[in-house]
Design a binder for these strands. Structure first.
Lengths: 216, 216
DNA sequence: TAGATTGTTAATCGATTAACAATC
DNA sequence: TAGATTGTTAATCGATTAACAATC
């Protein structure tokens, strides 16, 4: 009699909004308030209160009518739901500009991610340290990933070699890939790929700018 | 009698996919082929051919039944539609890790963007050069933006100062902001904001990983 | 000509928004 | 109690997918 519902996965739109709420809530927590309502969040973010209520509901939090949500409990509920309460090990491949920038983000571990090592093909980079993490040769990636039980791979190599690197990660047992290369990577079923394509974002921005131009 | 239709703006989903097609098309162009059909693209990207056809249609391209699209014409059509054929000047605020990484992207000008200068508040950074661009003090941003007719602002400063920087950009006449700070920025109507929130992406990735875990 | 592919209209699906009862 | 806010069901909206005529 337990769990008979088909349980559709949470929509990507909702998942993308939860971290935005989380950020606002933490800002509010710092001011010392104890509770917050959907209408307050909606006001601040200029979005719809009902949508926020539905988004928050997926995390399992319960609010109190006339009061709202307990701020600390809500923050924790989002963190647990998003998987930020357990830190997962990650390998980063491609210690160029973008890769180095990501290695420099020292708050990722608050968000469930610990980049434990970086890999590169360039012998000039191998052996150096970037933000405290040693850069290792790319051919060690798969073996070390398996040995260290690394769950996440971050791809910041150029597009032409992204697939090859993804294959190394998969063979090392990595189960989720954060792909910053502007190209499609093919992985076996069950491996999660999250694409982060800067050119797509830039395309959206510039097209809107062009369209606004045309209207005037 | 011209243009009486209400003309809904192109959906963001379509805008995000166009650069992905563009990348694939350029890869194909390099192999020497002259035409391509939607089913070929769909096969390569594992997505729906009808969707691709509709996406491409917004750019105004016309295909030929039984043949497909002229590859070079299609690439150009996407570039013109996205506004990549005219290069716009951009200022970047925040010459830290991520800002430096973006300054190092030397292909942005192929995609309609030319980052002409960087700004920072830290006196230690001001005066240095990052990837060939001088770092200027942040208080010069608004005046210079106006004088140089800079249209795009890129925000890579920490969240707490993002709003202040956005205000400088707006007062300098910038009409589109690419915001990498994980916080909402308020701008007057007519100014375009494109948010690029790494924590949102990370949230999506890790939640899916957690959810996959729970199922097993 | 026959068949593959485009372009477009209709049907489906899912996400957002509105309505409203439950509750503190 | 009255009123604000949650939780949930229904209505709307838009995007994706299917169907099919037009065309090369």
């Amino acid at each position: 009699m337990d769990e008979p519902k088909p349980l559709r996965p949470t929509s990507e739109a909702t998942l993308r909004r939860l971290p935005i709420y989380h950020h606002l809530l933490q800002k509010r927590l710092a001011t010392g308030i104890k509770t917050i309502s959907c209408s307050q969040i909606a006001e601040e973010l200029s979005c719809d209160a009902t949508q926020i209520r539905k988004d928050l509901a997926v995390t399992g939090i319960k609010g109190r009518p006339k009061v709202g949500y307990d701020l600390a409990a809500l923050i924790l509920s989002i963190e647990i739901f998003l998987g930020w309460s357990r830190v997962r090990k990650a390998f980063l491949a491609g210690a160029g500009h973008l890769g180095s920038a990501l290695l420099g983000y020292n708050r990722f571990h608050h968000y469930g991610l610990d980049i434990v090592a970086a890999f590169d093909r360039d012998p000039d980079r191998v052996g150096t340290k970037v933000h405290g993490r040693e850069v290792l040769p790319i051919n060690k990636l798969a073996g070390l990933a398996k040995r260290m039980r690394v769950e996440v791979g971050i791809i910041t190599v150029p597009a032409p070699v992204a697939q090859e690197v993804a294959d190394f990660m998969v063979s090392g047992g990595v189960r989720a890939i954060w792909n910053f290369a502007p190209t499609k990577i093919n992985v076996p079923a069950g491996v999660i790929v999250q694409n982060e394509d800067l050119y797509s974002s830039l395309g959206v921005l510039l097209q809107k700018l062009s369209a606004a131009h045309r209207l005037r």
